[in-house]
Design a protein around this nucleic acid. Sequence first.
DNA 1: AGCTAATCGAGACGGTACGTCGCGTCTTACG
DNA 2: CGTAAGACGCGACGTACCGTCTCGATTAGCT
Lengths: 199, 199, 199, 199
Amino acid sequence: MSGASSQPPRPRSGNRRDEAARLAVLHAADDLLAEHGFSALTIEAIARRAGVAKQTIYRWWPSKVEILLDTLIEDSRKRLPVPADNPTADSIRGYVHDFARFLGDDPAGKVLLALIAQAQHDPGTAESFHQRYLAPRRDQERDMLAHGAEDGQISPRLDPDATIDALLGPIVYRALTGSSVPGSLVDTLVDDLLRPRPN
Amino acid sequence: MSGASSQPPRPRSGNRRDEAARLAVLHAADDLLAEHGFSALTIEAIARRAGVAKQTIYRWWPSKVEILLDTLIEDSRKRLPVPADNPTADSIRGYVHDFARFLGDDPAGKVLLALIAQAQHDPGTAESFHQRYLAPRRDQERDMLAHGAEDGQISPRLDPDATIDALLGPIVYRALTGSSVPGSLVDTLVDDLLRPRPN
Amino acid sequence: MSGASSQPPRPRSGNRRDEAARLAVLHAADDLLAEHGFSALTIEAIARRAGVAKQTIYRWWPSKVEILLDTLIEDSRKRLPVPADNPTADSIRGYVHDFARFLGDDPAGKVLLALIAQAQHDPGTAESFHQRYLAPRRDQERDMLAHGAEDGQISPRLDPDATIDALLGPIVYRALTGSSVPGSLVDTLVDDLLRPRPN
Amino acid sequence: MSGASSQPPRPRSGNRRDEAARLAVLHAADDLLAEHGFSALTIEAIARRAGVAKQTIYRWWPSKVEILLDTLIEDSRKRLPVPADNPTADSIRGYVHDFARFLGDDPAGKVLLALIAQAQHDPGTAESFHQRYLAPRRDQERDMLAHGAEDGQISPRLDPDATIDALLGPIVYRALTGSSVPGSLVDTLVDDLLRPRPN
DNA sequence: AGCTAATCGAGACGGTACGTCGCGTCTTACG
DNA sequence: CGTAAGACGCGACGTACCGTCTCGATTAGCT
């Protein structure tokens, strides 16, 4: 009688939030951005493509920016993790290379660029984008640098935030202006900024 | 003096383009962007504030982006000139500092950020922005570096475009993410990138 | 026995139809109509005010019109009975006066007007309204006239349905157009229609 | 001369109100009401069927009720004129017959019923309906009775408003409840109300 | 000196998307 | 079972701007 012990895996729906609808919205938003650009990313278009009612979107997301943030956070976690355990000089250098690849080649990179852009147009977006994406990531990146420095793997010449901005800024700027990022540029940046001046 | 006695208030244009209307549109666009942000920058709002008919805007500008580009090009020419004649190490360093100030403090800096952003959302904007603003400026900046290197004022470690992106990228990225740019960061970037490795 | 002791506030229904919920719905509908008009009489508002789930309403009533019909039928039975036993000329005249008062002053009169109105907009309402309210009442009114005529109390000059429509029509029309119904009008109508032409 | 000289028939549009759009909206509203009833009479449906933008409707009419009022006023003027010049007993009787026919057979009669109904649901409609339709018509009907009485054509037994309500009320009530109005009923009402009691 | 052509303010027009409300159906968990 | 709760697909609401258009007025420059 106590029967089916702890959590029988219910294919639920109805009273609770519909997980299928949630995923359909996230994928529809991603796809629309990739296929037709940000200007085609309207709530109505997302609802249409996801086969979902507009109200279902508004019930769970205050704006299309939050939808994109949801996908970006998830994709970044999976495909652009920040080296955390005993980062080596190589793994840190690898992270910057991965960042360049993420921005340039991964569809999720386009989401990141779109959010950076939209943050310029709308203060609400800026706020959300910082709190939910930039700040947590920056914390991880700072940790990475701090641990790397503790272990003697790197010796940054600037304070942590300046170091990260100096490393990633050029990559982001190139992506924003439609240019590619050659590996040599990344290597030079890493060499310059993470090693002390030899003299 | 002979003329305008009978009709007191409005000297209507006539056959030629009305310069007053042109300026009113540019200023209205600038002001709206500064006061209420890009989302309030609609053609209807510009027309309303400029006291101009919508058609007058559409006759002379294909989109609001071109209006902003007009103001940005003019303002950049005046307030952020690229050192051209015999640039010294100091004048080049000064230009990077000026660039940071322009982005951070000058209202026209907000226009530049808005255009970078809009270029992510709309390919037409990207195209126009490159051809009318980024490319010409980049040409001047390349010249500046080339002349500086010829004269022995600087010795860039990277190719010209990479050098400029590495210098300006962090500044732009900080502006895009709402941070300030300390002078020390600029100095470090300039020192690193425009001087050869000592060893 | 397990008794209603442990749970203080809500004695949930259980297996049979919850009479308290039924009454709550009827009163909520009545109140909303009286307080905010027909346009505020939505199923969601009724459920909200009655503290009842929407599904509970849909389970027992096919539409909000049927809710109103339930209240109207009950209220009419109580507060506007048709004289049935040996109607006299006076009791018939009194009924017409009562009808005018019901439409003009009783909250239930507003329900009747709302249903007459809604019947114009929706054939389903018209059908229900006729079968459940108008036809049964008309039968009683016809009986009233027939018995009155048999007893020599009245001598209608028109056939029964025409008589009733000629008596009540002006009253309803005045109510629909927001006018009051003076007693003298009722008296004249009764005098004209229920007595034979003297000549 | 009188001919088509003065006003060359311009098929205009543009800056001024588009007469074709106005008529398309009125006809679309009429048709939708006749074909699918009031519940199908949404602004979106009218716009769709008229081939007109929603905003064009909202620009000129505050609500769908005003659209119906426009059509009703026009149709009533054309097809149910109130006898004005030297009304005779016969022309007055004819008017009441025409009124019954209008309500029963003319599509515009359905518009009138729909507006009477909607006025019960919405105070704004009631207000508009009175000021724009009922009151002006009532004025004309009062004039008709007054002139008829002056000329000795009729001798109403009730005050003018009561007379009109007593005449038209039963007709309206029958129409509202889906019944037909036999000519004999009209004749009896007219005879009763417009001639003095013989005794 | 009159005619032509272009500009300008004004604003109507057909559209698309906005964010909200209520509909009627549904599923769950509780009693 | 009936119930409270509430998510869901749907469709209309009334508003804001879009980009196009047509008006009537104004004013140069060319016959």
